[in-house]
């Protein structure tokens, strides 16, 4: 039985390797062999599909990111291609242009959109073609910061069932313990520089996680407005140094309380019988 078992597992291994190889060929083949020329019309579709328009306009002014009109003339073609292909890598390599842009646009980094080189070519063709998009979206209606905070921490539910911001984001102004760590801390966030930019991004977020989370549960304009009102409040946009002290204090008090509780419940433990017994006997002898 043992012998059979080993032979079987060998067969399974070979089989799975073969399947993997076939799957690889199947996916690689169209890329490798079919190369249509870059088309500006493809680029336009991609611009919307990949959510570039969440942060950028062409000729409509800056939103979260810069206005892209004339970008193909402003920047070197090769640099642009590399930047759109893998902005995270360019940033990490310490590129001076990328660093300057990041600083200018409130430290909101351009996300890696997982484009293929062909798709980048199409996009560049579209951007260089002189097309324009509309301006920034309409300004949001007036929002209520209190209601925005309730949405953020989950006290109020979003109409379309979206999850509360606090599950993934932390921000000053929601208590010392803050929120989740999956997304960036929204204190001093570059997304709230203008309500138009915020609305544009939140209507169709282009980053991978946000895009997936909000694609089917979009926020209503009023919800966006309330959140914007909350996030752009001065007290939320700045983390007080005392908050750090608060967290430290909470951690120390919490740990002490847990240890005290554990000690109260589990403290009575048998800590040796022989040694105390012998010590007692010797002490009695010494007394005599």
């Amino acid at each position: 039985m043992k012998v059979n078992g080993r032979r079987n597992s060998k067969n399974v291994f070979l089989g799975s390797m073969l399947t993997l190889l076939l799957a690889f060929l199947a996916t690689a083949a169209p890329v490798a062999f079919a190369q249509p020329p870059a088309q500006a019309s493809d680029g336009e579709a991609l611009f919307k599909e990949k959510g570039c328009n969440a942060c950028h306009t062409i000729g409509g002014g800056d939103l979260v990111g810069p206005d892209l009109q004339g970008v193909t003339e402003r920047q070197d073609q090769a640099w642009l291609k590399q930047w759109i292909l893998a902005p995270d890598q360019v940033l990490a390599s310490g590129d001076p242009i990328a660093a300057e842009l990041l600083k200018k646009y409130n430290n909101v980094p351009m996300p890696n959109l997982s484009l293929t080189p062909d798709q980048v070519d199409s996009l560049l063709a579209y951007l260089g073609g002189g097309a324009t998009t509309g301006g920034a979206g309409a300004e949001l209606p007036a929002g209520d910061a209190t209601s925005g905070k309730a949405y953020f921490v989950g006290d109020k539910r979003f109409k379309n069932g979206g999850t509360q911001c606090m599950s993934c984001h932390s921000v000053a102004g929601i208590g010392a313990l803050g929120g989740g760590n999956l997304g960036p801390d929204l204190t001093t966030s570059g997304f709230v520089q203008s309500s138009a930019a915020f609305a544009s991004f939140m209507s169709a977020p282009s980053t991978q996680t946000m895009g997936a989370v909000w694609a089917n549960t979009p926020l209503t304009p009023q919800e966006q407005a309330d959140l914007y009102a909350f996030l752009s409040k001065a007290s939320v946009q700045k983390r007080e140094p005392s908050a750090l002290l608060q967290i430290a204090l909470l951690a120390i008090v919490g740990a002490a309380a847990l240890i005290a509780l554990a000690n109260f419940y589990w403290g009575k433990r048998l800590r040796g019988v022989r040694k105390p017994m012998v010590e007692r006997a010797l002490a009695m002898k010494a007394k005599k």
């Binding site: 589990w266 009575k268 433990r269 048998l270 800590r271 040796g272 019988v273 022989r274 040694k275």
Partner: peptide
């Protein structure tokens, strides 16, 4: 159950 990771009545090796 509450003591399952902490058996308080074990003899020590010294015993």
């Amino acid at each position: 159950l509450s003591n399952i990771f902490y058996n308080p009545a074990l003899p020590t090796i010294d015993d």
